[in-house]
Amino acid sequence: MLLLGLDTSTRRVGVVLANEHGMLGRVELGGTADTAPPRHAETLAPAIAWCCERCGVELAQVSAVAVGIGPGMFTGLRVGVTTAKVLAQSLRVPVIPIPSLDLLAYPLRYARRLVVATIDARRHELYWALYRQVPGGVQRVSEYELGTPDDLVAELEARGEDALVCGDGSLRFADAFVPLGRRVELAGPAHASPSLSALAELASARYEREDFCAPSEVLPMYLRRSDAELAWNREVV
Protein backbone atom coordinates (compact mmCIF):
# COMPACT_ATOMS: atom_id res chain seq x y z
CA MET A 1 0.00 0.00 0.00
CA LEU A 2 1.18 3.51 -0.81
CA LEU A 3 -0.89 6.37 0.49
CA LEU A 4 -0.72 9.99 -0.66
CA GLY A 5 -2.24 12.46 1.82
CA LEU A 6 -3.05 16.15 1.28
CA ASP A 7 -4.37 18.84 3.59
CA THR A 8 -4.88 22.44 2.50
CA SER A 9 -7.61 23.48 4.90
CA THR A 10 -5.43 26.20 6.48
CA ARG A 11 -2.63 28.41 5.12
CA ARG A 12 -0.39 25.37 5.50
CA VAL A 13 -0.01 23.20 2.38
CA GLY A 14 0.67 19.66 3.57
CA VAL A 15 1.66 16.56 1.62
CA VAL A 16 2.41 13.16 3.16
CA LEU A 17 3.41 9.76 1.79
CA ALA A 18 2.97 6.62 3.86
CA ASN A 19 2.93 2.87 3.43
CA GLU A 20 1.63 0.08 5.68
CA HIS A 21 4.63 0.50 8.01
CA GLY A 22 4.20 4.23 8.56
CA MET A 23 5.21 7.57 7.12
CA LEU A 24 7.74 7.81 4.28
CA GLY A 25 7.97 11.59 4.23
CA ARG A 26 6.07 14.81 4.24
CA VAL A 27 6.26 18.39 2.98
CA GLU A 28 4.78 21.38 4.78
CA LEU A 29 4.72 24.91 3.39
CA GLY A 30 3.00 28.06 4.61
CA GLY A 31 3.64 28.04 8.35
CA THR A 32 1.91 30.24 10.91
CA ALA A 33 4.52 32.99 10.56
CA ASP A 34 4.20 33.17 6.75
CA THR A 35 2.55 36.48 5.90
CA ALA A 36 2.63 36.19 2.11
CA PRO A 37 -0.64 35.53 0.29
CA PRO A 38 -1.62 31.84 0.59
CA ARG A 39 -0.32 29.95 -2.44
CA HIS A 40 -2.15 26.64 -2.35
CA ALA A 41 -2.67 26.48 -6.11
CA GLU A 42 0.96 27.27 -6.87
CA THR A 43 2.63 25.05 -4.27
CA LEU A 44 0.53 21.90 -3.91
CA ALA A 45 1.36 20.10 -7.17
CA PRO A 46 5.13 20.85 -7.00
CA ALA A 47 5.12 19.76 -3.33
CA ILE A 48 3.52 16.43 -4.29
CA ALA A 49 6.06 15.93 -7.09
CA TRP A 50 9.01 16.81 -4.85
CA CYS A 51 7.80 14.61 -2.00
CA CYS A 52 7.39 11.62 -4.37
CA GLU A 53 10.82 12.22 -5.89
CA ARG A 54 12.58 12.50 -2.54
CA CYS A 55 10.78 9.45 -1.18
CA GLY A 56 11.72 7.50 -4.31
CA VAL A 57 8.19 6.61 -5.31
CA GLU A 58 6.14 7.15 -8.45
CA LEU A 59 2.62 8.56 -8.45
CA ALA A 60 1.59 5.47 -10.40
CA GLN A 61 2.33 3.36 -7.29
CA VAL A 62 -0.18 5.27 -5.13
CA SER A 63 -3.02 3.03 -3.95
CA ALA A 64 -5.25 5.67 -2.36
CA VAL A 65 -5.38 9.46 -1.94
CA ALA A 66 -6.34 10.78 1.50
CA VAL A 67 -7.49 14.37 1.84
CA GLY A 68 -8.42 16.76 4.63
CA ILE A 69 -11.84 18.09 3.58
CA GLY A 70 -12.04 20.97 6.04
CA PRO A 71 -13.86 22.92 7.24
CA GLY A 72 -11.33 25.62 6.49
CA MET A 73 -10.11 28.06 3.86
CA PHE A 74 -12.34 28.04 0.81
CA THR A 75 -9.54 28.54 -1.66
CA GLY A 76 -7.29 25.99 -0.01
CA LEU A 77 -10.00 23.34 0.19
CA ARG A 78 -10.93 23.75 -3.43
CA VAL A 79 -7.32 23.25 -4.48
CA GLY A 80 -6.67 20.30 -2.16
CA VAL A 81 -9.91 18.42 -2.67
CA THR A 82 -9.87 18.96 -6.44
CA THR A 83 -6.26 17.79 -6.66
CA ALA A 84 -7.07 14.68 -4.61
CA LYS A 85 -10.09 13.86 -6.77
CA VAL A 86 -8.31 14.41 -10.07
CA LEU A 87 -5.26 12.37 -9.01
CA ALA A 88 -7.44 9.54 -7.72
CA GLN A 89 -9.57 9.58 -10.85
CA SER A 90 -6.59 9.45 -13.18
CA LEU A 91 -4.77 6.81 -11.09
CA ARG A 92 -8.04 4.83 -10.71
CA VAL A 93 -7.66 4.65 -6.94
CA PRO A 94 -10.11 5.53 -4.14
CA VAL A 95 -10.18 8.69 -2.03
CA ILE A 96 -10.23 8.73 1.77
CA PRO A 97 -11.79 12.02 2.91
CA ILE A 98 -11.13 13.02 6.52
CA PRO A 99 -12.38 16.15 8.29
CA SER A 100 -9.41 18.43 8.99
CA LEU A 101 -10.63 19.19 12.53
CA ASP A 102 -10.28 15.45 13.29
CA LEU A 103 -6.65 15.68 12.12
CA LEU A 104 -6.03 18.45 14.65
CA ALA A 105 -7.59 16.53 17.53
CA TYR A 106 -6.03 13.10 16.93
CA PRO A 107 -2.45 13.95 18.05
CA LEU A 108 -3.91 15.14 21.39
CA ARG A 109 -5.51 11.77 22.11
CA TYR A 110 -3.28 11.30 25.17
CA ALA A 111 -4.61 14.40 26.90
CA ARG A 112 -7.06 13.76 29.70
CA ARG A 113 -9.10 16.79 28.88
CA LEU A 114 -11.74 17.85 26.43
CA VAL A 115 -9.91 18.52 23.15
CA VAL A 116 -11.16 21.52 21.20
CA ALA A 117 -9.98 21.63 17.57
CA THR A 118 -10.31 25.02 15.88
CA ILE A 119 -9.60 26.41 12.43
CA ASP A 120 -9.61 30.13 11.63
CA ALA A 121 -12.69 30.84 9.51
CA ARG A 122 -11.79 34.51 8.88
CA ARG A 123 -14.24 37.35 9.51
CA HIS A 124 -13.66 36.93 13.25
CA GLU A 125 -15.13 33.43 13.26
CA LEU A 126 -13.74 29.94 13.70
CA TYR A 127 -14.69 26.38 12.91
CA TRP A 128 -14.53 24.00 15.83
CA ALA A 129 -15.40 20.54 17.11
CA LEU A 130 -15.01 18.92 20.54
CA TYR A 131 -13.37 15.54 21.14
CA ARG A 132 -12.87 13.06 23.97
CA GLN A 133 -10.27 10.37 24.40
CA VAL A 134 -11.31 6.81 23.62
CA PRO A 135 -9.03 3.76 23.42
CA GLY A 136 -6.88 4.19 20.31
CA GLY A 137 -7.98 7.67 19.41
CA VAL A 138 -10.49 10.43 19.92
CA GLN A 139 -14.23 10.59 19.49
CA ARG A 140 -16.02 13.69 18.35
CA VAL A 141 -18.66 14.78 20.88
CA SER A 142 -20.07 17.83 19.09
CA GLU A 143 -21.15 18.85 15.63
CA TYR A 144 -18.70 20.65 13.35
CA GLU A 145 -19.51 24.23 14.28
CA LEU A 146 -18.98 27.72 12.91
CA GLY A 147 -19.16 30.69 15.25
CA THR A 148 -17.39 33.58 16.88
CA PRO A 149 -14.66 33.07 19.50
CA ASP A 150 -17.21 34.29 22.06
CA ASP A 151 -19.63 31.54 20.99
CA LEU A 152 -16.96 28.92 21.62
CA VAL A 153 -15.91 30.48 24.92
CA ALA A 154 -19.58 30.44 26.04
CA GLU A 155 -19.82 26.76 25.09
CA LEU A 156 -16.68 25.91 27.09
CA GLU A 157 -17.88 28.02 30.00
CA ALA A 158 -21.17 26.11 30.04
CA ARG A 159 -19.38 22.75 29.97
CA GLY A 160 -17.21 23.84 32.87
CA GLU A 161 -14.51 21.21 32.33
CA ASP A 162 -10.79 21.33 31.62
CA ALA A 163 -10.06 21.78 27.94
CA LEU A 164 -7.09 21.84 25.59
CA VAL A 165 -7.61 24.07 22.53
CA CYS A 166 -5.59 23.51 19.36
CA GLY A 167 -5.52 24.79 15.79
CA ASP A 168 -4.80 28.11 14.10
CA GLY A 169 -8.16 29.47 15.29
CA SER A 170 -6.91 29.31 18.87
CA LEU A 171 -3.70 31.13 17.91
CA ARG A 172 -5.56 33.91 16.13
CA PHE A 173 -8.08 34.40 18.94
CA ALA A 174 -5.86 33.48 21.91
CA ASP A 175 -7.06 36.52 23.90
CA ALA A 176 -10.67 35.35 23.75
CA PHE A 177 -9.84 32.33 25.93
CA VAL A 178 -8.19 34.32 28.73
CA PRO A 179 -11.46 34.77 30.73
CA LEU A 180 -11.69 30.98 31.06
CA GLY A 181 -8.57 31.05 33.24
CA ARG A 182 -6.50 27.97 33.97
CA ARG A 183 -9.23 25.52 33.03
CA VAL A 184 -8.47 26.08 29.39
CA GLU A 185 -5.01 25.69 27.90
CA LEU A 186 -3.94 26.56 24.35
CA ALA A 187 -1.83 23.91 22.60
CA GLY A 188 0.37 26.44 20.76
CA PRO A 189 2.04 26.56 17.33
CA ALA A 190 3.08 22.88 17.33
CA HIS A 191 -0.61 22.00 17.07
CA ALA A 192 -1.67 24.80 14.73
CA SER A 193 -2.13 22.72 11.56
CA PRO A 194 -4.06 19.52 10.85
CA SER A 195 -1.56 16.74 11.50
CA LEU A 196 -0.10 14.97 8.47
CA SER A 197 0.98 11.99 10.55
CA ALA A 198 -2.62 11.73 11.78
CA LEU A 199 -3.77 11.86 8.17
CA ALA A 200 -1.41 9.00 7.27
CA GLU A 201 -2.36 6.94 10.31
CA LEU A 202 -6.14 7.41 10.13
CA ALA A 203 -6.25 6.96 6.36
CA SER A 204 -4.12 3.79 6.50
CA ALA A 205 -6.55 2.26 8.97
CA ARG A 206 -9.47 3.19 6.78
CA TYR A 207 -7.73 1.80 3.71
CA GLU A 208 -7.27 -1.54 5.48
CA ARG A 209 -11.01 -1.58 6.26
CA GLU A 210 -11.76 -0.57 2.65
CA ASP A 211 -13.57 2.43 4.12
CA PHE A 212 -13.05 4.78 1.20
CA CYS A 213 -15.03 6.29 -1.65
CA ALA A 214 -15.00 7.06 -5.34
CA PRO A 215 -13.48 10.41 -6.32
CA SER A 216 -16.86 11.70 -7.53
CA GLU A 217 -18.37 11.26 -4.04
CA VAL A 218 -15.87 13.53 -2.27
CA LEU A 219 -16.91 17.08 -1.36
CA PRO A 220 -15.20 19.74 0.76
CA MET A 221 -16.91 20.34 4.09
CA TYR A 222 -18.23 23.87 3.83
CA LEU A 223 -20.07 25.08 6.89
CA ARG A 224 -22.30 27.62 5.27
CA ARG A 225 -22.84 31.09 6.49
CA SER A 226 -26.21 32.72 6.06
CA ASP A 227 -26.93 33.39 2.45
CA ALA A 228 -28.75 36.36 0.96
CA GLU A 229 -29.41 37.64 -2.49
CA LEU A 230 -27.42 40.68 -3.51
CA ALA A 231 -29.63 43.72 -3.90
CA TRP A 232 -28.56 44.62 -7.40
CA ASN A 233 -30.24 47.42 -9.20
CA ARG A 234 -28.75 46.54 -12.55
CA GLU A 235 -30.08 49.03 -15.01
CA VAL A 236 -30.49 47.94 -18.59
CA VAL A 237 -28.36 50.32 -20.58
Binding site: P37, M73, F74, G76, R122, R225, D227, A228, L230, R234
Partner: peptide
Protein backbone atom coordinates in the same frame (compact mmCIF):
# COMPACT_ATOMS: atom_id res chain seq x y z
CA UNK B 1 -15.50 42.59 -9.62
CA UNK B 2 -18.62 41.32 -7.89
CA UNK B 3 -21.06 42.58 -10.52
CA UNK B 4 -21.84 39.11 -11.84
CA UNK B 5 -22.46 37.59 -8.43
CA UNK B 6 -26.05 37.03 -7.32
CA UNK B 7 -25.79 35.78 -3.77
CA UNK B 8 -23.72 36.56 -0.70
CA UNK B 9 -22.75 32.88 -0.62
CA UNK B 10 -20.83 33.40 -3.85
CA UNK B 11 -18.75 36.04 -2.08
CA UNK B 12 -17.89 33.47 0.59
CA UNK B 13 -17.23 30.85 -2.10
CA UNK B 14 -14.66 33.17 -3.63
CA UNK B 15 -12.80 32.96 -0.34
CA UNK B 16 -13.15 36.72 -0.22
CA UNK B 17 -11.72 37.22 3.25
CA UNK B 18 -8.79 34.95 2.33
CA UNK B 19 -7.98 37.14 -0.66
CA UNK B 20 -7.26 39.98 1.76
CA UNK B 21 -4.32 38.13 3.31
CA UNK B 22 -0.95 39.39 2.16
CA UNK B 23 -2.45 41.41 -0.68
Amino acid sequence: DVYRLDRIQEVHDLGFEELLEGR
